[in-house]
Amino acid sequence: MKSLILLCSALLLATPVHAAQLTLELDAGSRTWQTDELLKHPLARTVTVKDDVSYKRDMSYRAVPISALLTGIKADDHLQAVALDGFAAELPAAPLLNQDGAQAWLAIEDPAKPWPPLAEGKHSAGPFYLVWTNPQAGHISPEQWPFEVASIKRLAPVAERFPALRPDPKLAAGDPVNQGFALFQKNCLACHRLNGAGDSQFGPDLNIPYSPTEYFGADFLKRYIRDPQSLRRWPQAKMPAFASSVLPDAELELLVGYLKHMAGRKQAAQ
Rank of each mutant, 00 (worst) to 15 (best):
K222F: 15
N195G: 01
T133G: 07
A250I: 03
W145K: 02
K260A: 00
V158P: 09
T32L: 00
K122E: 15
G180E: 02
S245F: 08
Y61T: 12
Y55H: 13
R62H: 15
P212I: 11
L24G: 05
I66R: 08
D168W: 09
K153N: 09
E90A: 10
Q34D: 15
G138Y: 09
S60A: 13
N195F: 14
L183V: 08
G126C: 01
L259R: 11
D227W: 14
R223P: 01
R57S: 12
P163D: 09
H18T: 11
W105M: 01
G196P: 10
T35S: 01
R161C: 03
I108V: 01
T35F: 01
E37H: 08
V158E: 07
A112L: 04
R233E: 04
A268M: 14
A268P: 03
L24Y: 07
L252N: 09
W132Q: 03
F128C: 00
P157D: 00
D36N: 15
V53C: 14
F216G: 07
H261L: 10
A159W: 12
K238V: 01
L70V: 04
G86L: 00
L79G: 03
S245A: 04
L7F: 09
N207P: 15
V53K: 12
Q103N: 02
L70A: 02
F220M: 05
L70N: 06
D51H: 11
T23P: 12
L13Q: 10
D199M: 15
A125D: 08
L7D: 08
K74S: 13
A197S: 06
Q179Y: 02
L194P: 15
P163N: 04
I5M: 12
V47I: 08
V246R: 05
K40G: 15
L43D: 12
L84M: 11
R232I: 12
E109V: 10
S244A: 03
D227L: 13
L38Q: 03
D205M: 11
I208K: 00
A182N: 07
S3K: 07
L38V: 07
K266P: 02
A119S: 05
G126V: 11
L130G: 07
L194I: 15
L43T: 08
F184G: 12
A182I: 13
L22Q: 10
M59G: 09
S54G: 15
V64A: 04
G174N: 13
T71I: 11
I73N: 04
Q34P: 13
H18K: 12
V131D: 06
M262H: 05
D52C: 09
A156K: 05
Q103M: 10
Q99M: 07
H261V: 09
E160V: 15
V53N: 07
K113G: 02
V53I: 15
D227H: 13
G180I: 05
G264P: 06
L13K: 09
P235R: 02
P235V: 04
V149Q: 07
H192E: 11
K238D: 06
L12G: 12
K2G: 15
I108D: 05
D85Q: 06
H192D: 01
L155E: 03
S30M: 05
L97W: 07
T48H: 14
A68G: 04
A125Q: 03
